[in-house]
Design a protein around this nucleic acid. Structure first.
Lengths: 191, 191
DNA sequence: CTCGATTGTCTAGCAGTGCTAGAATGAGCG
DNA sequence: CGCTCATTCTAGCACTGCTAGACAATCGAG
């Protein structure tokens, strides 16, 4: 039965090719440019092939987003592991988060701004998602009011997300983003 | 020349009808449902009429957004004028802001989440926009580091915006939004 | 009061979108 | 070799934003 295994392998490979191509296309030309036709063209198959791998465009978006959560997790982990939990680590986390967003704008959109169909804040939330949140939570928890670490992290995260989206949309001048980050960390970290 | 005046009046009336109808349609069925055909249908004209009033869909979005900024301004003003500048006023402002967003989700999207073509943070930014920001700024400024009130308000605003968008997208459970608001105000207002 | 010109509005159409039914193709097995 | 069946493609649907050109209504001049 080796032929079936080979087919499955090829199929998995093509699955990944679709996700990667969608991501590249989005990162270079924006998500509006990621149409089923263009995507099919790039992978050198016809549109219906996409639908044999994914229910529709939204599910492709979700697959790309999932990749993003894994990468965000490792980016945050790298920032958090540098030093002891404290002000500098929180600042490093904040910088890592916004850095990730500005380095991968389309990826960030797939994760947080567009409708990717992934369940959040539920028991069925995929592992990479919960992990990313945990990496942000743990170093921050000690600065929170003892019984509400979740609330604290959520609010801090929301502030970061707001800064990211408003900056990228041109609503806030980008030059002073580092200063806003410093201000935010100062407000959230002191006792 | 009364006939021309009448025509201009009718034209202005129809202009407003388009904006109002787009807003209603968006608020009831979401912005995706606001297509040129459906919109034309509702106002009982054909699509090309829309393009004699607006360059395209984006400009209609911008007109709706402008209405929103005026309304947000008066909502914030009402909240700020209730008491003396202080913690309670800041909290009231925050509640007014998120309340406005949850009461008018589609309107809020037109203002801050979708591409409405309006210039932000420039000299050409429309007055209603600058005004809305000013109403948020003034009661907050005294809690800021003396030389950076702008930075302070921008960061606070970004946090509010982040909470609003993540909550509405289902990324954060809505029940505890008031608690997150309290936490945020506490962090930004003390000394 | 009629006739040309100027508005204004509409019909019909373009190129693009996400998605799918059914035809054509190809590879594996007896 | 020929049959079967899964895979892939062609062609098409209903929709999108937007626009050219036909048409009708209104106006000012004679």
């Amino acid at each position: 039965m080796s032929v079936r295994e080979r087919k499955e392998r090829e199929r998995a490979h093509r699955h990944q090719l679709i996700v990667s191509t969608a991501r590249e296309l989005a990162e270079s030309d924006g998500w509006d440019a990621v149409t089923t036709r263009r995507l099919a063209d790039r992978i050198e198959y016809s549109q219906p092939v996409l639908y044999s791998h994914f229910r529709g465009k939204k599910e492709i978006l979700g697959a790309v987003a999932l990749e993003g959560f894994a990468e965000l997790t490792s980016a945050l982990r790298a920032a958090a592991s540098k030093g002891p939990a404290g002000r500098s680590t929180v600042a490093a986390l904040a910088r890592a988060y916004t850095g990730f967003a500005t380095d991968n704008p389309a990826l960030y959109d797939a994760m947080f701004s567009l409708d990717n169909g992934l369940p959040f804040a539920e028991e069925s939330t995929p592992a990479p998602l919960q992990e990313a949140f945990a990496v942000l939570r743990d170093p921050l928890a000690e600065h929170a009011h003892p019984d509400e670490p979740g609330l604290f992290v959520e609010t801090f995260w929301a502030a970061l997300h707001g800064l990211v989206t408003l900056t990228r949309a041109g609503r806030l001048p980008a030059e002073r983003l580092p200063d806003r980050l410093t201000l935010l960390v100062d407000r959230f970290v002191s006792h």
